[in-house]
């Protein structure tokens, strides 16, 4: 481990959807695996301080409108989100932005996997 990094654990110990909560300084960070990629977000919802990373990790539901008179068809899209279990505020894993209002952002951290070990970069 180099300066500015925190070791999380073995990458192959994570299944998709798994979350590992670590301490980064005085805050909790959730390290999340989704679609084979690792993400790290502050585990504190900007709404009410809930554990934002401890809710379900899913694909975001999106709607597609086929034109006038057509139903808006819903399907799970490409973007992965995590939802705070307290009230359902949901955030993109990629950016930490709230899915409905990007003025709310959970701080995010870079994650690297080196020699099979997951590290969260804290610089």
């Amino acid at each position: 481990m180099s300066d500015g990094e925190i070791e999380v654990g073995a990458a192959d110990a994570f299944a998709d959807g798994d979350v590992e909560i670590i301490e980064v300084g005085r805050v909790e960070v959730g390290v999340i695996k989704a679609d084979g990629e690792f993400y790290a977000l502050r585990n504190q919802c900007p709404h009410d301080g809930g554990p934002a990373c401890e809710g379900p990790v899913e694909k975001r539901l999106v709607g597609e409108w086929g034109g006038p008179g057509e139903r808006v068809e819903q399907r799970y899209g490409d973007d992965s989100i995590v939802s705070c279990p307290w009230h359902g505020w949901s955030f993109y894993l990629e950016t930490g932005e709230h899915i409905g209002d990007d003025s709310y952002v959970v701080p995010s951290y870079d994650v690297v996997v080196r020699d099979g070990v997951v590290y969260v970069q804290t610089d």
Binding site: G88, G100, D101
Partner: peptide
Amino acid sequence: YLKRAEEAPLLDAP
């Protein structure tokens, strides 16, 4: 909307 944004899927903003 902040709690249930996916239920208004055509919206790009509140």
